[in-house]
Design a protein around this nucleic acid. Sequence first.
RNA 1: GGGCGUAUAGCUCAGCUGGUAGAGCAAGUGACUUUUAAUCACUGGGUCGCAGGUUCGAAUCCUGCUACGCUCACCA
Length: 535
Amino acid sequence: MKNINSIEEYDNLRSWPFIEAKKIIDSFGGFEEFKKPKKDFVIFETGYGPSGLPHIGTFGEVIRTSMIKNAFDFLVQCPSKIIIFSDDMDGLRKVPDNVPNKSMLEKHLGKSLTSIPDPFEKFKSFGEHNNSMLKKFLDDFGFSYEFLSSTDLYKSGFFNDMIKTILKNQSNILSIVLPTLREERKKTYSPFLPVCPNTGKVLQVKIEEYNLKNNTVIYKDPNNTKLQEISVLDGNCKLQWKVDWAMRWMALEVDYEMCGKDLTDSVDLGKKICNSLGKSFPINLIYEMFLDENGEKISKSRGNGIGIEEWLRYSSPESLSLFMFQKPKSAKKLHFDVIPKNVDDYKKFLEQYNKNNSLSKCDNPVWHIHSGNPPKIKDYSFNFNTLLNLVSICNSTDSDVIWDFIKEYDKNINQKNDPYINELVKYAINYYKDISLPKKKYKLIDENSMEIFYDLKNTLINLNKSSKSEEIQSQLYEIGKRNKFENLRDFFKLIYQVLLGQDEGPRLGSFISFYGIGKTISLIDRAIKNEDLSK
RNA sequence: GGGCGUAUAGCUCAGCUGGUAGAGCAAGUGACUUUUAAUCACUGGGUCGCAGGUUCGAAUCCUGCUACGCUCACCA
């Protein structure tokens, strides 16, 4: 089945995943004369360093790559897959902050991650632990991918042929890499990092001799300065990472890989290496970094910006996907304030998608977010900011109470039939619990106003339990009047400050009606006793 | 020093392949005469960073410049 019927339709697709997919297609003859690559499928790669756990950047890279793959699959008939490559053979450079058994790890610094015990004591090695965390992370989001371990491919000999080629051309490669290095590093630089047979450490040492006949290199053992000869094959040597990257492209025949702009120069270098060996290299997209609200780069160690688990606590995965979809080449501020806009934009795009029937639907962000199959959600007429506001104002973590207010506002939706909106309510409640609640300042009742609250309490007790919000409301006005408030506004403000810990609030009649007269009375009781209502 | 990105209303930003400047928030005015706002209606003349160029026509394409920011030049 063909999704695209003419070159015009093809040319009209403008969104960036299509633009990127077209670059791949062009490299294989273009849309009309497309020919599958010799290996019979197209490979997208994303790589992960050893430094630790998956984070929001990881998510961004995988979802963006998936969007391109999806666009590619839509345009041409050609199998494709995403490879997640773990650099688990890299040496551990420093002990991460967020792990147990730090002193144990300390002893293994410099060794490959896959030959260091798991500090969590669940897997055979630290590397395997990290790999499994990565896989779980990706699985939780439902990404499809093929996982590859650097260690496995080195040790199994999969890389051997390409490593031999690198060895043959090592002087050529040196001439490409050396000019990019500082004087100090130039002296010892080699594409080959021997794995010390005695200590297991990945050694960054000067290579004294390259032996092409035996596929070995000779170096001085840093411990005893004796010359040591070691094979470059079967995982006895690792390649220095930039060369490693290029080697991997060639060995796996990677067609597409994106990366953050901090790797710009490395990509360039990798391409040059491939070129010098007469090999092709992947099409590359360089995306911008994420910034915090002050415009500074987000880094896990600094803990600025917002983490993926935070986003998902306060909002939907779809809104995060939308964020990731927008403008990968622009630096984007990633902090809480951008969430509501993405939630509302998602809804807007989805509505647009479900109305419009033209091919340009495929350029709609939701098409990419949902791999070509966006769902339908019930229209709702408030925005997410409003919902956040509502929960905060209602001072309730009870979604039933929130829903009572929502239903009053929009009768067409309800808790059972609109699960998407119900999710939004949960997110809003989380936000309220974490952000708004701690900021509340409950006012204690002073002697002058104590009467008012007794009056309020007694009035509520005498009310019929089935009283409607309007009746309650008019009773409230009466209380205000008989307690001689010149401006009733101050009366309500006092109640909000004491009972809700804020200056403003919902229409009290409605609030008491939904919240429950009985519950309101017990709330007043606690306030009268000067209990801390924030707990 | 190399690379990249951004410069559009007070703020945050949209403006796709060039054709009379938009949204959200903030602000203002009015309405609901019983507070409140998750209310409703109305209100946006901003040299689209600067200077050239292409064009009948440019925020939109090209060149140069300026400012700000990010990134690399250890390791990965």
